[in-house]
């Protein structure tokens, strides 16, 4: 990878909207590696990402931001170390309609612990329109217990503006001096 190529990693459980979120902002059609879902996953989605999703943000002639979506199924977690290497930041998407979203959150925070220590993350919570609990405030409380201060925003992964705002929150967290004139 050249110095002009960077990446943002999207992670989260099955059905949280990672593929959709990447598609919302990618300049290319997202390369998906979906397969028919097996076992527990099938209850939530007919297909699921087994390797990774890939999208791209083109910035001028020679700069690219690669957008990687991790597989939703836990058994593929061995790839995550490779994925995060050289990442600018982490976007953790959580599905509020799942039975235990805090457990999901803990799982992914543990999985990306080292990366989060050295970088920044944002959290996007999906499916809140029909599943109001837990509220955003409760997610902050959970993060606070772990000593993490990060943006937590309600999003609809299909909404481009929501994903843009999420990424902007990540960028301003990484560099609050951005946009200074």
């Amino acid at each position: 990878m050249t110095g002009h190529n960077h990446k943002i990693i999207f992670t989260g459980p099955v059905g949280a909207g990672k593929t959709t979120a990447i598609s919302a902002i990618s300049d290319i059609d997202v390369l998906k590696t979906d397969e028919n879902a097996q076992d527990m996953t099938k209850k939530r989605k007919q297909t699921t990402t087994v390797a990774l999703d890939y999208g791209l943000l083109k910035l001028g002639e020679d700069e690219r931001i690669h957008l990687y979506g991790t597989p939703g199924q836990e058994r593929f977690d061995f790839m995550w170390d490779i994925l995060t290497n050289g990442g600018l930041g982490l976007v953790l998407l959580l599905d509020n309609s799942r039975p235990t979203p805090f457990k999901d959150m803990d799982f992914f925070l543990d999985a990306f612990r080292d990366f989060i220590c050295d970088n920044k993350m944002v959290m996007g919570v999906t499916h809140m329109e029909h599943n109001e609990a837990p509220k955003i405030e409760a997610y902050h409380q959970q993060l606070h217990k772990r000593g993490i201060k990060a943006p937590v925003l309600e999003i609809d992964a299909r909404e481009k503006n929501d994903i843009k705002t999420l990424i902007k929150a990540l960028l301003y967290s990484l560099d609050p001096w951005l946009g200074r004139q």
Partner: peptide, 25 residues
């Protein structure tokens, strides 16, 4: 600032993301 406001669902004002980022730090 206690924590980030849920700015995707609140009425936006200019530079609110920047202010939130700085004040969260």
């Amino acid at each position: 600032l206690k924590h980030w406001p849920n700015l995707t669902r609140l009425k936006q004002s200019p530079n609110d993301l920047r202010i939130a980022a700085l004040l969260t730090e």
